[in-house]
């Protein structure tokens, strides 16, 4: 970790000095052991703030949109999911490749703080990497675990921990790409009856407070003005009731259908713990089943499944 952190700082400093980037987006150490929030570095002298550890979860791609109006190139450190987010935004013309300089970092997978808390408690927690895995120390004791035991669920099913687009790649070990069935949970839900499925989602979505954190972290939600922020026409009023919450989530997932890169940020950002990736997985699964194999964010020029068609598409509509 420290080695990569050092390398990050050095490269950011060099690239700013060389004029290849005028600012850098990365992560810094936050106020608590479980936080490594995004940071914008504007001068070579600040690169010491950059930090790489197992909490650099936030997808930085989203920030590039606000950098578009700024002068000069923006350097960005990208994990697998950030890189797919970049492709995503490039595909939509939301950002300009010529205004970015991408430094890839192979991603080992990020930690779910809740999983660590359940093992060693919260407060004074230290996590050190060992040959075998991780050594956790906390108020409830010490534990040695493999990273996968405490990794975020979204990382456990990550199919592209290596960045898929970059200008240069830092050396490092990525986790093994997931090759299993990413739709297992969605299939389990599909097996239920209509009413059971309805009740399941009614219970989950009735909690939604419509804070829009899921939308605002999403690299596929890059509209300049979101339909849910419009008042003419007013597509959805501000009342948080089950019906409106269902509509919000369904429409959002229809909007990101075939564009979702499964970075899982929506689910991580949701303060109410709504299993949003089960909706994302369902849509992704159907896109693949109906229109052929497709993964969003692998290619900045990809054809979007809902932006194209094949005359021989399946047709159950007669």
């Amino acid at each position: 970790m420290q080695r990569i952190t050092d390398k990050m700082r050095k490269r950011a400093e060099e690239l700013i000095a060389e004029g290849k980037a005028v600012r850098f987006l990365g992560w810094e150490k936050g106020s608590f052991w479980w936080q490594s929030p995004p940071v914008e570095i504007k001068e070579a002298s600040q690169t010491g703030r950059l930090n790489w550890d197992l909490f650099c979860t936030a997808n930085l791609a989203k920030y590039l949109q606000q950098m578009q109006s700024a002068e000069g190139k923006t350097g960005v450190f990208v994990k697998g999911c950030d890189a797919r987010g970049i492709n995503r935004l490039l595909r939509d013309g939301a950002i300009d490749r010529d205004k970015t300089y991408l430094v890839g970092i192979p991603c080992p997978g990020m930690i779910d703080p809740d999983k660590v808390r359940s093992l060693v408690g919260d407060g004074e927690v230290t996590i050190t990497q060992t040959e075998e895995g991780l050594s956790l120390q906390g108020p409830l004791g010490s534990r040695k675990v493999a990273l996968d035991e405490v990794a975020l669920d979204k990382c456990l099913t990550c199919r592209h921990p290596e960045p898929v687009i970059y200008d240069e790649l830092l050396e490092g070990a990525a986790r093994e790409a997931f090759t299993g069935d990413p739709y297992e949970e969605a299939r389990e839900l599909e097996d239920l009856g209509s009413d059971e499925r309805y009740d399941y989602w009614a219970k989950e979505l009735s909690r939604c407070i419509r804070c829009y954190a899921c939308r605002n972290v999403c690299p596929a939600c890059n509209c300049i003005q979101c339909v849910f922020d419009m008042d003419r026409p007013n597509w959805l009023d501000g009342a948080t009731n089950l019906s409106n919450n269902q509509v919000y989530q369904m429409i959002r997932f229809m909007h990101v259908a075939g564009r979702c890169i499964d970075c899982g940020e929506c689910e991580r950002a949701c303060p109410m713990g709504i299993p949003l990736r089960k909706l994302a997985a369902k849509v992704d699964k159907d896109v693949n089943e109906l229109f052929g194999p497709f993964e969003a964010g692998l290619d900045p020029e990809e054809k979007l499944p809902l932006g194209t068609f094949d005359p021989n598409d399946p047709d159950s509509f007669e």
Binding site: V39, C211, A213, R215, N216, D237
Partner: peptide, 22 residues
């Protein structure tokens, strides 16, 4: 700079009282 402009902080705040009429 890093704020994403979601409303999580305000909705979860025990003192935030802003409201809309619709």
């Amino acid at each position: 700079r890093k704020c994403l402009e979601c409303g999580a902080c305000t909705y979860l705040c025990p003192t935030c009282h802003c409201y809309d009429l619709q």
